[in-house]
Amino acid sequence: MKFTLAALALAISGASAALIINTPVSAVVCKPLLITWSGGYAPFFLVVVPGNNPSGPALRNFGAQPGHSFTWVVNEPAGTSVGLLLKDSTGAIAQSAPFTIQPSSDTSCL
Rank of each mutant, 00 (worst) to 15 (best):
A94G: 09
I21E: 11
T100A: 07
L8D: 08
K2H: 08
P43A: 01
V73A: 04
D106P: 01
I101K: 05
K31E: 15
L85A: 13
A42G: 10
L86K: 05
L5R: 11
I101Y: 13
A15Y: 14
P57E: 15
L33E: 07
A15Q: 04
A17F: 11
L10M: 11
T100F: 10
N53M: 01
V48C: 13
D106M: 06
S16E: 15
S16A: 11
I35L: 15
I101A: 11
T100R: 06
L5Q: 13
S105D: 08
L110Y: 12
T100H: 05
K31C: 00
P54V: 01
A7P: 07
Q102V: 09
W72E: 09
V73F: 03
L33V: 02
E76C: 09
A58Q: 07
V25D: 10
S13W: 15
K2M: 12
F44W: 07
A27N: 01
V28N: 00
F44H: 07
P66S: 06
G91R: 07
T4W: 15
A15R: 00
S81P: 10
V48H: 08
L10V: 06
F3G: 00
V48L: 06
L85W: 09
P50S: 08
P54S: 02
N22W: 08
T80Q: 10
P24L: 03
L34A: 12
V48Y: 15
L46M: 02
A42Q: 12
S16I: 04
V47P: 01
A42P: 15
S69H: 14
L33N: 04
L10G: 04
F70P: 06
S104G: 05
K31H: 15
P24Y: 09
L84T: 01
A17G: 04
A27T: 02
L33K: 01
V29T: 09
A78V: 09
S105K: 05
D88Y: 14
W37I: 01
E76T: 11
T100C: 03
S105V: 11
V49E: 15
S38M: 08
A17Q: 08
G79F: 00
P98M: 12
Y41L: 15
P77D: 14
A94S: 14
G79L: 02
G56A: 13
V47H: 01
